[in-house]
Structures are given as structure tokens and as C-alpha cells.
Computed example of a mutant assay.
Amino acid sequence: MRAIQITEFGGPEVLTEVELPDPVAGPGELLVEVDRAGLNYADTHQAENSYLARMSLPMVPGGEVVGRTPEGRRVVALANSGGYAQKAVVPEATAFDVPDGVDDLTALSMVIQGATAWVLLRRNTHLEPGESVVVHAAAGGVGTIAVQLAKKWGAGRVIATASSAAKRELALDLGADVAVDSTSADMTAALREANDGRPVDVVLDMTGGAVTDQSVAALAPFGRLAFYGMASREQPSPVDLGALMRHSTAVSGMWLPHAFKLPGRVVHRAMAELFELVVAGELRAVAGGEYGLSEVRRAHEELRSRRTTGKLVLDPSR
């Protein structure tokens, strides 16, 4: 089968197209004929071995696929790796049946980005109706869904940040009440101004560095910031516990694999609700571009430069 393999860690240049034997499913696993694989910012960290889970070589990257099992079951699934290929093996516990009428792009948009947005809003920040919500990187995969969910679930004001006028226009089209330039020198002031001069209640942040520090400073008493990525590759300042107490604010982190360990099948509940909203026409995925295996280096370059919007997918047939 055709696949992308990494034999040394680094940037997009380490992604190499090769021929590999078909993988074989073991107990508790499914073999999937891959129709599309998801391209995620986390994949760029996998390639350079800077992800939360350390990787070993050689490796076929890619953590999400949609396709069919040998029995004809259409599933979207998460995997530790192996998605950038014509066939992949996935844990049965992280595979979800795709409802009729849900296309490949939308299914892939829900399984990581949608579930991440759901967990951030429902479990990390416990969004209450009427609260203000800041969504950083609002034109990205998680951001485009988080904007829609926050609005649907009663946020009083959804504040989107994005780096270009086109991305900010997209966020407004998805339901954001106001869009802020993410390159603003003083994000604290920009967020408060966007909230009619008031501090904000909830921030969803995957940027890191000064943006995180200034977003924490923008929080209202009992405000919550949920941190789920570091696209800037810059560490924010260490959390000052005394400052959190003085301002009655909270900072939490979220990595989706941990949500699978929660009682009550939380991710399965999230996926069921997300698919219901999609089928009802109340939630939509934003297409960000489709790439063939031969174009995967370009896809990673565009992800790393943060030029993309919405959901990016890989077509292993070309």
C-alpha cells in the first residue's frame, strides 16, 4: 500500500512517500480502507517528536481516518499513528459509525476537532448561558466548531480571534459576535474592548506564549482559560497560583486522549451529539483543503505557517 513514512524526526522534509505491507488488525482492532485521513496541527509536532506522546521510528503519521472495514462498516476513528496510508489499523474503542448523510470531511472534522471543542466547553470550562467566550484561532479546525457550539449553547458574546480579515470574516459568518486581530500587541486590552470593556468569562486557547499570558489577564472573576495547544511553539509564563487566587480565575489543560478515560463514555456522548447537530443542519464543517499523499509536505508547511482555515484532509488514493 502507499503510505507516508518518517524515518527521522524533523520538519515537513522528513515526510516520505513509500510502499509498505498492508497492516494487520489484532484483537480489539479494526482494519480500515482509508477514504480520507485528517491533517492536524498535532501531526506537525509528531513529525518533529515534540508532541505530548513521544513517538518512535519508523512511523506512519496521522491520527484520524474515515473509511470502511472489510465488512463494509463505515467508520471514523482515532489512532495513535498510521493514518497517512491507504489502509490503517485503529482501536475499535475509538471508532465511531458515521451516520448516513455525513460526508468524509465532516466526519473527520468531528472526531478530533469537534470532540475537542465539545470537551473544552462542556468539561473544562463548564460554559454557562450568557457568559462571554473567546475562541483563539477561530478559523482553524477546533475554532470553527467551537464558535458554533458556544453560540448554540447560549454564550452571551462570542469573541473570535484570527490573523487575517478573511479568517475573521469566516468566524463572524459562523456566529461570532465580534472578531479581533490575533496579532494585536495587547491582547488583554483587545479582548476587553471586544467585550464592551468588561473582562471575559471563558477563553479557549491553543496559541501559547504572550497570547496565553494576556488572555489569563483578561479573565473576569471565576473566569476560565482552557489550554489545548501551542501553535506559536512558545511557552506561556508559569501559572502563578497566588494570582489565580487573587483574581478567582482558573487555568486548565486538555488533551483529548484523556477524555476517553473518563467514566460515562464522554467522547462517545460528544460524538453522538455532534452528529445529531450535523444531521439537523445546526453544525457544519469548514473545508480547508484536500491534499494527495504526494502533497503532504506542502500541507504540513501550510499548517506550520498557520495559513490554513477549517479542516484539512488527505486523499490516500492520489
Rank of each mutant, 00 (worst) to 15 (best):
P99A: 08
V98D: 02
D22H: 13
L219C: 01
Q235P: 11
V278P: 03
L244V: 11
K311S: 05
V203C: 03
D315F: 09
E92F: 13
T207E: 08
L170P: 00
Y41R: 08
V60I: 13
E282L: 14
E19K: 13
G72R: 10
R157Q: 09
T212H: 15
Y51P: 02
T125L: 10
S182L: 05
M230C: 12
V89T: 00
V251A: 00
A146Y: 06
R306Q: 12
D97Y: 08
A25N: 07
S252I: 10
M230H: 11
G197L: 05
E128A: 14
Q113N: 15
V134D: 04
D240G: 02
D97M: 09
Q46H: 10
A259M: 14
A166P: 08
E29I: 07
A3F: 10
A155H: 00
L57F: 12
Q148D: 07
G253F: 08
G253R: 11
D100T: 10
T144L: 04
L108H: 01
L274C: 01
V267W: 05
F260V: 04
T249H: 08
V111S: 01
R298S: 14
M254N: 12
G114N: 05
A37G: 02
A25T: 04
A155T: 02
G11H: 02
D205Q: 10
T16K: 14
P263L: 06
L293T: 00
A79I: 04
I145V: 15
F275K: 03
V76L: 06
L262W: 14
H268V: 12
M187I: 11
A107F: 06
A138K: 03
V203G: 06
E301T: 10
E17T: 13
E19I: 13
G130D: 13
M206P: 11
V66P: 05
A162P: 07
K152R: 15
V286E: 00
A115H: 00
Y51K: 03
E295P: 01
R168F: 00
A107H: 07
H136M: 10
D186T: 09
G62K: 03
Y291C: 07
E128S: 14
E71N: 11
E234Y: 10
A272F: 13
S164M: 04
L121P: 00
D177F: 12
